[in-house]
Amino acid sequence: MIELLALFFVSLIANILSALAGGGAGLLQLPILLFLGLAFPVALATHKVASVALGLGATIKHLKAGSLNWRFALLILASGLPGVFIGTLLVLQIPERWTLLILALLTSGLGIYSLLSPTLGQAPQSRHRSGLALWQGAVGLFLIGILNGSFTSGTGLFVTLWLVHWFGMDYKRAVAYTMVLVGLFWNGAGAISLAMQAGLYWPWVPVLLIASALGGYLGAHWGLKQGNQLIKRCFESVTILTGISLLIKTIKVW
């Protein structure tokens, strides 16, 4: 019971922060699964399943708010899902220390880039929505999809920043797309593929699903009420903390 309560509250906090920042639930959720004794492949698959509930909770709120353009949403799905499937086939073949190091450096870089760009994502500036630039954006989403399927946590943050940087969205709109499309669909595809390869630890799945769905809904609710500046600060905090956490784990594994 103590383990389940700890798992619930850690997962709830992680998913509230993730729904505010546009990713990063694995910063807290995956480490506690490993700490409580799950093997890495099982912990990763179980975390991915819980992330689907995060996407579901956020989706309910964002659908009510009408946050999405569904034609653009289909582009994100069509670009990213093939990459996710490729990534899940690669993840169990790559040494853990290399995946942790690469993800730590990339994730920290996202936060630093955002910190050094004060006006980034504060107001929508629609761009790269047609022609070659649109296809280049789709390739970027495909590559991020591979990261999403391959790596352990925080890859939703890459989608958020890509939507802000390349397509000119503000942070609030970009987080909405990430939570619905990455949280629900990309992570759903990754969860199915990983679960078939590694299996799940079913006794903890119901607690994680409830905490993730509730955290996703609450985070999306508060995110819609707040301005882009607060969401930007949450994004930067989560990315840098995720990067530091992953670097620490890299040193331990190495």
Results as ranks from 00 to 15, higher is better:
2 I>H: 12
2 I>P: 03
4 L>Q: 12
7 L>W: 04
7 L>F: 03
7 L>M: 05
9 F>R: 00
9 F>Y: 08
17 L>N: 06
21 A>N: 01
28 L>Q: 10
31 P>L: 02
39 A>W: 04
43 A>P: 03
44 L>F: 08
47 H>P: 00
47 H>S: 10
48 K>A: 04
50 A>W: 01
53 A>F: 07
57 G>I: 00
61 K>R: 15
62 H>K: 06
63 L>C: 02
64 K>H: 09
69 N>L: 07
72 F>Q: 09
76 I>C: 08
81 L>P: 10
81 L>I: 14
83 G>D: 15
86 I>D: 14
91 V>G: 13
91 V>L: 12
93 Q>H: 14
95 P>D: 14
97 R>Y: 14
98 W>Y: 15
98 W>A: 08
100 L>V: 02
101 L>Y: 09
102 I>D: 09
104 A>N: 11
104 A>V: 07
104 A>R: 15
109 G>V: 00
111 G>E: 07
113 Y>W: 07
118 P>K: 02
123 A>K: 11
124 P>F: 00
124 P>C: 00
127 R>Y: 00
129 R>K: 03
132 L>P: 00
132 L>S: 03
132 L>K: 11
133 A>F: 02
138 A>L: 05
141 L>T: 01
142 F>W: 11
145 G>L: 06
149 G>K: 09
150 S>G: 07
150 S>D: 09
155 T>F: 13
158 F>S: 09
159 V>D: 13
159 V>N: 15
160 T>R: 13
166 W>C: 06
168 G>C: 08
169 M>N: 13
172 K>G: 04
173 R>E: 15
176 A>P: 10
185 F>W: 11
187 N>M: 14
189 A>H: 11
189 A>C: 09
193 S>Q: 13
193 S>P: 08
193 S>E: 13
205 V>Q: 10
215 G>R: 12
216 G>I: 02
216 G>R: 04
217 Y>K: 01
224 L>H: 08
228 N>W: 08
230 L>I: 10
233 R>I: 02
233 R>P: 03
234 C>S: 10
235 F>T: 07
235 F>E: 07
236 E>I: 11
238 V>K: 10
238 V>G: 06
245 S>M: 05
248 I>H: 12
249 K>T: 00
249 K>C: 02
251 I>V: 12
